[in-house]
C-alpha cells in the first residue's frame, strides 16, 4: 500500500471521524459529500463512539498475504452506539467465545504492513468490551 492511500483515511481510521448531515442528522462513516438520506451537502464533523455490539461475524481460517500471520482471525459487523455500523476485525477473543450481540470496543491496532520495508497501516479493531 502506498502511503498516500493510507494517509488520506487517517481521520477515519485513527479517530473514527464521520460526517453528520446538518439538515437531517444522518451520520455517515466514512464521510460523504452528499447526504444519502436527504441530499443535503453540508455536514458537521463528528466522531463515532468506540463502543458497540457485534451484529454478525465470521472467522477466517487462513488469511492470504500477511494475514497468515494472524490467522485464524475473526471479522465482524459492529453496530456502534448511535446506530452507525462498521466492518472490522475482532481480536483478543477465542473464536469459540464470539457471539452475536456481544459488546465490543474499538481499539487502535496495526491493520497491515507493506512488507518489512513499507508503511505500517493502523486503524481500528474490535475487542471484547
Amino acid at each position: 500500500m502506498q502511503p498516500q492511500e493510507f494517509w488520506r483515511e487517517i481521520p477515519q481510521r485513527y479517530r473514527l471521524e464521520a460526517s453528520k448531515c446538518l439538515k437531517c442528522g444522518a451520520v455517515f462513516f466514512p464521510p460523504r459529500r452528499r447526504c444519502a438520506a436527504c441530499g443535503h451537502e453540508k455536514f458537521a464533523l463528528t466522531r463515532l463512539p468506540r463502543e458497540g455490539k457485534v451484529t454478525t461475524f465470521s472467522v477466517i481460517r487462513q488469511g492470504g498475504g500477511d494475514m497468515i500471520r494472524i490467522s485464524p482471525y475473526a471479522v465482524c459487523l459492529v453496530e456502534l452506539e448511535g446506530g452507525v455500523k462498521i466492518a472490522a476485525q475482532l481480536v483478543d477473543v477465542e473464536p469459540e467465545a464470539i457471539k452475536t450481540g456481544m459488546p465490543v470496543r474499538l481499539e487502535f491496532r496495526k491493520i497491515r504492513e507493506t512488507g518489512d520495508a513499507g508503511v505500517i497501516c493502523y486503524g481500528y479493531k474490535a475487542v471484547p468490551a
Partner: peptide
Amino acid sequence: PSWDQDTATMSVEAAR
C-alpha cells in the same frame, strides 16, 4: 503483544 500491537498502538490506548 499480538502481531497487531506495537508501541504506537499501546501508546494510543494508554493515552486515551
